[in-house]
Amino acid sequence: MSRRFTALVVVAVLLAAPLLLGNAFLQRVAALVMLAAISASAWNLIGGYAGQVSIGHAVFFGAGAYSALLVYKLTDWPPIAGAPVGVAVSLLLACVIGLPTFRLRGHYFSMATIAVAELIRIVVSNWQFVGAAVGLMGPAVPRSLADLSFLSPLPYFYLFAAVLAVLLFLTWQMQRSRMGFYLGAIRAGERAALSLGVPVLRYKLLALLLSAGFTALAGSLYAVMVGFVDAESALGILISVQMVIIAALGGAGTLFGPLLGAAILIPLQETTNALFGGGGTGLTYIVYGAIILLIARFRPGGLLELLHWRRRRVA
């Protein structure tokens, strides 16, 4: 009861927050928090719940982002029309990447995902059809409402929040279903899970497919908002790493962990820039590094764990 109440209040506060900010820049930061929360929550399905730490999710993000602008370039349709294409492509990619790499465990799996992502980044940056090194651009000026190109960041915020809500609802359902328990078992020990009759490969693949689909959707939404994509900004390793850091900061394998992580990291990234613009360059990365160190040393379970631990003690 109290838990559901907390969740409700948090959601209400989050939804109202950008209205109170009344400043386009801060509203946009809020929209970016939602966007980052979508991709980190999507990563969380395979990386958190199933414990398969992929550092190559930029592949799916890139598939979504590129599909949106490629569909626009080829057909002149609004970029968002490319979102289903991006999801389809990334599901296909998930199968192609997942089946062989799932045979690897732990660090070897992570390294394999990095390798695949880098490979695809290099191929894309040399492939004329998708703009090679120049990248692809969206409509320079919005032609209709369907282009989803708004001056105010608020429509983006609510669009992203809605997608996030769907994703979190699905995750919540999954968490309580058989699949949630299977993934927990896989995370705790693949061999043990297998010996107990858990169809490990099938469920890992299922989690990856769900994860890839939503990551691609995040990529499409990104492309729609930013209106430009190139290999570095959509397929770069930093995209993958950011999903991992955000989820780990808030709490990997928890429902609201990625959202919390995004709400802390994204504003941090933007405000260090605002504060130190000319002077403290690179400070963002120093802060990133410090956060990773602190989490790894003191709170491997993420910040949400801190809250749960407090509750347990009070109870």
Binding site: S2, T6, V13, A263, I264, A274
Partner: peptide
């Protein structure tokens, strides 16, 4: 009281990075 404390903490965490701007 635990809910309130948790909320406070959460709100603090959410607000902290945006204060300077």
């Amino acid at each position: 009281p635990n809910v309130r404390r948790r909320l406070l903490l959460l709100a603090g965490l959410l607000a902290a990075p945006s204060l300077p701007v």
